[in-house]
Structure formats: C-alpha cells, structure tokens
Design a protein around this nucleic acid. Structure first.
Lengths: 216, 216, 216, 216
DNA sequence: TATGAATGAGTATTCATTCAT
DNA sequence: TATGAATGAATACTCATTCAT
C-alpha cells in the first residue's frame, strides 16, 4: 500500500481545449524524429510540455495517438492545397503547373515528407491507416484528376488512355521527388528547385497526355 | 550398451555455406510481415529453422542483419532486371515499354513491395540504408536513364529538359503503382494489370519527352 | 441577459450528510466485484454518482476508505444479528438453532461473503483490519458464546471442555459454509439450504457439547 | 536502435530442471508477504536468485505463476497428510483425533495459512483457482470423509444426518483455527496448542455425530 | 558451429493523489 | 463542496544480446 507523495508541479496548467492539438503536434515531431516504435510516450509528452499520463486523457493509446496525428496532419496539409478547378477555355497547362508547384511547395518540406515516410512504414502494421488512405487520400488526390481527364477526353483535348493510371502517374512523378529529395535526403546530393521540378514534370505529363494536334 | 542411438541424419546435415542466405531470406519474410521493430530475432531464427544464438554467428546484430538483408534482396531484384541497352536505330518506345513491363513484373510483387516499404520506413532510423540507396539505387536506376536521355537530346530526339528530373519522373510513375497497389493494397480496390500500367505510363512519358516532330 | 439558465434542480440537490454512507456503499460494491487493488477510486466514484476528487473530501485515501467500509459494513451486519440471550429454563437447543439460522441468513449472502473474502485477503496488508478483527469480531462473536458455555458447565449442562475452542468451533462450522457456498461458489455444485445447514450444524455441535445425561 | 551492453553476470548458472520449483517457492514467499498485486515479478525473481526475464521462460505471466504456485503448494501440503483409512473394528475416535492433529500440524503453519489466505483473497479474481478448488480440494478433503460417515450410518454407528454437511463442518472447525490463529494472528492473543484444539474439536464433532448408544 | 538459458534495459499503461477552479 | 485535468511513481512484460555448454 504505497503512499506516494507528489511534488507541487509549478506548471499544472489546465488547457483542455488546446491539449489535443498540442499533443498531436508534439507527436508528429517525435514520431518523425525517431519512427513509430522508438518514439516514446514520455518523449512526446515532454515535447508537448506535459507528462505522460496526460496524453492518456486524450488518446486511448499510442496507436490511436499515431493514427489521430496522421489524420489531423493530412487534413492540415490538404487544407493548404487549393482545389484544382477547371473550366472550358482555361489554360490547362498553366493550371497544372501551378497546381504542381503548390503541391511540391507543401509536400517537399521535411514535415510533410516525414509524415509520408511514417505512413508508408507503418501502413501494414497499424490498421487505422488503411482506411485513412483509402478513404481520404485516394478519392481526393486521385479521382478528381481522373475525372478532369475524362472531361478532357470528351472534348478531344486528351488522348484516349486510362485516366486513372494517367492521374496516378502524375501523382507518382511528384511523389518520387518528395520521397527522394526529402525522405532519402537526396537533395543534399542532387539539389533541384521545386519550381524546376514542377515545370519539368508538368510539361512531360501534359505533352504525354494531350492530343497531338492540340498545342498545350 | 551396444546399440548406439543416433539422431536422424537429416538433423545433423549442416550447410554452413548456405546459412547466411537462409537467414536473410527468413529475415525478409519476418521483417516484411511485422515491420522492423516488431520482428524478433526469435521469429527470424524460427523461420530459418535455427535458433536465435546462431544468427549472431553470422550477423553482428539486428540492424546489421536488416541492412544486409536489404542489400542482398535489392541485388537479387536488380539482377532480375535486364540492362536497358540502346543503340541508334532501335525502337526507343518499344524498349521503354518492355523495360517498364519487366520492372513492374519484378517490383509489383508483395515481396518487392514490402522491401520498399521497409526501406522507406526505416530509412532515417538505420544509418546503413542511406549509403545503400545513394550508392546502389540512384546510380543504377536513375543515372543510366538520364544519360540515355542526354544522348537522345544530342541527336534531337528528346526535348530539351532536365534529364535527371525526367528520368526520375519515369521511375516515380512506376513506383507509385508499386506503392499503392502492393503496399497500400489498392489493387483490391482499383485492380490494374501490370501490362496496362506499363503501356500507359511508357506512352505518356515518351510522348512527353520526345521532340514533337518525331513520332514515337 | 435576462434569462438565467439553471442546471436541473435535481443536480444541485446535495445531501452532504449521506455522502460518506453512499461512498461506503459504492466502495463495497466495487471492492467486492474486483478486489482491493483492481478496484479504482474512479470506479467507486462513478458507482456513487460522484467524481474521484470528492471521495478525498471524506476519506484520507484508498486504504482508509477500505477500512472504513469494512468497519461500517461489519457493524451493519452485526446489527442484523439479534443478541443471543440465555436464561436458565430456556431451551438451549432451540436458541442455538435459531441463532444459527439467523446467522446463516445474514452471512450466506453474496455481499456478506464478499466482505469476508475481502477482509481475509487484505488482512495482512492493511493494518487497520487487524484491530477491527481483534476488537470487534472476536469479542462479540466468540467470547459471548464462550461465556455462555461456561455458565452451562457450572450447572452441569455442558461437558468439561475448553469453552473458547468450543465456541470458535461452532463459528467455524458456520463459516466454512459461508466461505464454500458463497465465496467459492460451491452452492452451484452442492446446493444446500441454509435451514438444513443450520439444523445439522447446530445438532452436531449441541450433541457434542452437552453432557451425556442431559437430553438436548 | 539501442545497443545495450550487458555486464557479465557472475552467477549465470543454468539449472533448467530446478528453476520452476525454485521460482514457485520464491513466489509463495513473496506473494504471502505482500499479497498478489503488490508482489512484483522483480521481487519474486530476486527472492529466487534470478532475474525477471527468467521467470517468463517458465511461466506465461504473473497469474499463471500464481495459480501454478497454489496448485503445487496445495499438492505438497496434501502429500504431507496421511490418508485416513478406516476399517471395521478400528477406534474411530482415535483415528479422527490423530488425523485432526496431523491436519492442524500441517495447516497451522504460517506458510500453509498464508496460502489459504491468498487463495481466498484471489479466488474470485483469478479464474484458475476455481477449478483448483472444485477439482482438487473438495473431492479429496470433503467427499472422502462424507463417504466414511455414510459407512458409519449403514452400521448404525453414526446418527442419521446429512453426511456432506457433517463432513464439511469438521473441516470448518479445524479451518477456523488455522484462519484465526495463523492468518489473523489471534494466536498472539489467545494462544492454543494444536493438540488441545485437535482433541477438543474431534471430541465435540464425534460426540455430535455418533449414535447415542455407542460410546465414542 | 549451434544451442537455449539467462540477462536486464526499455516502455506502454494504470491509477492514487493533488489542486486550481 | 465538488470537479476533473494533471501528475508521475510503479510494474508487467518484451526481446536483443550474451555465453556456458
């Protein structure tokens, strides 16, 4: 029957409204730094300026904290990306380049890249991530563009090809740079400006996708 | 006691030369199934049909085992890919499609995809992986194609664009399908044949990269 | 803002005087269900319809709550048992049987049995229980009967034997049924009616204790 | 990726055959001293002269260790009790007194009493204990005696009464002394010799059970 | 070489207790 | 009085690594 005595914590501040957000932020930092397993709840708490036990007031366990963090941070990233709206008469190529530029600007940052890396690494170990990807990432990032391409095909602007594959290809072209430059640290070896990447990638994809006769 | 008892001959059959290989094979299986941290030396040993201690006769520790496994399996995969040789007069498009097809054939398998996933997830936690990637993957997979493009530019076949970016883009186009279809399990949701992917991707990239006047 | 909002009147109804009692009641329920250690202050509070912190307004800590609960509930049980009064000329056997019946009626209930079980299990871990037993249980339950027996011996009704041992034996005869039937759940395997038990036990003990010549 | 270095343990002795027994012995000591929950695996290991991890080589978890310990120690106690054999012509009373004496001799020891106390306290928290009690304790300790009584009834030696209740009563008479004297520490307050207890208890029970006409 | 018993550092999680409001 | 957010000590259990055989 232990009678534990506690010191009077100086900073026993109550901020129930902001806590979850702060914890998620700290979680991303620590998970990104060490990886899912090596990241300790203790370290996350310290990073958030609280103590271990407090995390458990807001999250069931480490796994739920991880999934919540990924969901929240994905949403924050998604919120930074402007919706790609296309209407007849607009400059397709320009829209695409600008969208690509914006995408790289957001994704080619250490934080975003680390988030990707964490997701990929834990994808098959953490059940909650699957639905996150299938329900939030695919529909938004992929299907929208595919539908845009179908539209283009109907007006003869886009070559006849599988639009889902084409759309995902573009995503892959961008993604590989996020992965190599940021996650794999290749930017120290082969530095490339996001502008240059966006320009080149967009032009290759556009030329490859548009109908011959139509100047991009 | 005239009757000596022997263990079965089979149990005594030792193949010391094949041990490391068997261990690496078992390691890939178990690492892929559980991820780096949750994979236990015990489980790897069991998978290899030996006991824990024996692994340490061949590998310094878990990390070295992991890096050795990745290196070995990457080499095995690389060995399956035929070198892309191009000589003037050859059908550039056909070569590319066939190479892409072969690439997907090799990479769009659970094992290869799991290897990728493991690499990405551990990349920043396991020092040895960095050099592996920078020294083995980039030069072979990327620089070769970039040089090929430069050649194409010199003879006016390829548009003037950053060849390293273009080359890596192609890799990304393929890689995204390995990642999504195999690692993320999207193939259950949006099934696509490797042939269709290779064809579509190759044609987009080629059209996007080749000079206008030159029919692919 | 002219319209003041009130919480429901019921929610504000506070019965400070009944609080400790309610908490003790909840404590017995939860302690009995889970055991001393696994029972959490949180669960006890919830059971009592209050919050954790409130318990500490009435009890120093978990241990004191436990001891207080045991003391209170023992008293409540004791209050249910009528005092065994004997005066010359009364039917000794009948008194005993009725007292035994009453005792079993009170003790052979899940709640009483759980209380016993808790006491026994924590006896040597919780200092306060010792004095409770030595000062409240022994004198009342045991010594009274022993004195009664001495009286019987003086008038030649009871055989010459150690009265304390004889008295405690009777208690043990009853107790073993409380323990086995209620605590150990043997009543599901070997069901016995309290009446039958009381009758049989009382008759054995009486026959064993009374002087030969005296018909019970 | 922590690389833990271990000191060379001086006493890394391998004794797989004796380990389980040693651990069970240590477990009884520590469980008895502190109770189930407060007893730590660390303390049990230290008591056994080994380290925590080693316990887990032999027992699944704390609960299994506890149940295994109770089972083993109950068996050891049971082995100390000679079987009560009765054949016509033997002195029933003498047999009973001697058996009771032996029982108390074995059970009225701190270790045995602590084991009882542990069992009672954990009975409803630890599933494995239920079957232990129902399958091992009841049949051996109770049913044998009940059958003996039935035999006595058939030859007119024993009064007509419920033999199961009578048998269990005797057990209770003894058990209450184990409980009060050893577990509750009443022996410091009301010391009684086991011989005196056995004699008194046996004589009361016998007189109460035997047919009037038959001198015990 | 191979074994597998032993080690012990490391960690997620729980929960009694405190205290600002 | 009452709340409930915050604390942090405590602990079962895991598993990479060692080493006597």
């Amino acid at each position: 029957m232990p009678a534990t005595t506690h010191r009077t914590a100086a900073a026993r501040t109550r901020r129930p409204d902001e806590r979850p957000e702060e914890i998620l932020e700290a979680a991303l930092t620590v998970f990104a730094e060490r990886g899912y397993r090596p990241a300790t709840m203790e370290a996350i708490a310290r990073e958030a300026g609280i103590t271990k036990g407090t995390i458990y007031l807001y999250f069931e366990n480490k796994e739920e904290l991880f999934v919540s963090m990924v969901r929240e941070k994905l949403r924050e990233l998604a919120a930074l990306l402007p919706p790609v709206a296309y209407e007849p008469g607009m400059d397709f190529a320009k829209i695409l380049k600008e969208a690509g530029q914006k995408y790289l600007e957001v994704m080619m940052t250490p934080r975003a890249a680390q988030l990707m890396s964490l997701m990929i690494g834990q994808y098959n170990q953490v059940p909650g991530l699957r639905s996150l990807y299938l329900e939030e990432v695919i529909p938004r990032g992929n299907m929208e563009l595919a539908r845009l391409l179908e539209l283009g095909q109907q007006v003869g602007l886009v070559r006849p090809l599988d639009t889902v594959i084409a759309a995902r290809s573009l995503f892959g072209m961008f993604f590989i740079f996020v992965l190599t430059q940021e996650v794999f640290g290749a930017k120290a070896v082969t530095p490339m400006s996001p502008e240059m990447i966006a320009d080149t990638v967009a032009s290759i994809w556009l030329e490859g996708v548009l109908e011959r006769g139509n100047p991009s």
